[in-house]
Design a protein around this nucleic acid. Structure first.
Length: 198
DNA sequence: CGCCCGATGTGCT
DNA sequence: GCACATCGGGCGT
């Protein structure tokens, strides 16, 4: 397979967030391939967006968001969790899509090393959970996603129709003021529920 | 320098 | 439903 190209990520961030639904996130660990279908995303858009990490201008932490599209912005939060974003849009405009949930497909045994003590439905159904599952952390911050020869990239996979997409307010930003708190920039794909042993 | 709190997850009541 | 882990960023003093 081939990685999604730079021009995919160079689109407007909410469009990238919508179009990432159904794509395949791929991680190579120790030569083994882990992957899953992206089923939930959120868009964070510019310094104006008061829920975005760039709301106070460029800092060491958010610097990657100001760089070229198609790179990973990985941040640390709550003293213990990592979250994965993909940078979008043009250089100089800080915007990124938070990957909030995936449905695991490949590398289930590798994933189980870190998530196996939980029911399978809970392996990757949160931004920090999927980072733990795929061993994504600060060493991945700034990594390019543009080559299928790298350690992390995104591929085409299944087609998600508009009637399979739900939108809503972003999660965990209740302290952001309106209108940002209510922007419908969370995107969820409703997949036919494949039976997974819980 | 100190304080507050966060794009969360987990376990316990 | 709720407390709490755990620490760095951002901001005010």
């Amino acid at each position: 397979m081939t990685a999604l190209p730079a021009d995919f990520y160079e689109q407007e961030v909410t469009r990238v967030a919508r179009c990432l639904l159904g794509k395949r996130l791929v991680r190579i660990l120790d030569g083994k391939r882990l992957s899953g279908i992206i089923v939930e995303t959120e868009a964070y858009r510019g310094e104006e967006d008061l829920a975005c990490h760039a709301k106070s201008g460029p800092t060491r932490r958010n610097a990657v968001m100001y760089g070229p599209a198609g790179h990973a912005y990985v941040y640390f939060t709550y003293g213990m969790h990592w979250c994965l974003n993909v940078v979008t849009g043009v250089v100089g405009f800080p915007a990124a899509v938070l990957i909030r949930a995936i449905q695991p497909v490949e590398g289930l045994e590798e994933i189980a090393l870190r998530r196996g003590r939980f029911p399978r439905r809970q392996w990757c159904n949160g931004p920090a959970k999927l980072c733990q599952a795929f061993l994504i952390n600060g060493t991945c911050n700034g990594a390019p996603l543009l080559s299928a020869g790298g350690a992390l990239w995104i591929e085409e996979d299944i087609d998600i129709k508009d009637d399979q997409v739900r939108t809503g307010p972003r999660v965990g930003i209740d302290s952001a003021p309106e209108p940002w708190r209510s922007k419908p920039w969370r995107f969820l794909a409703t997949l036919p529920d494949i039976d997974q042993n819980d």
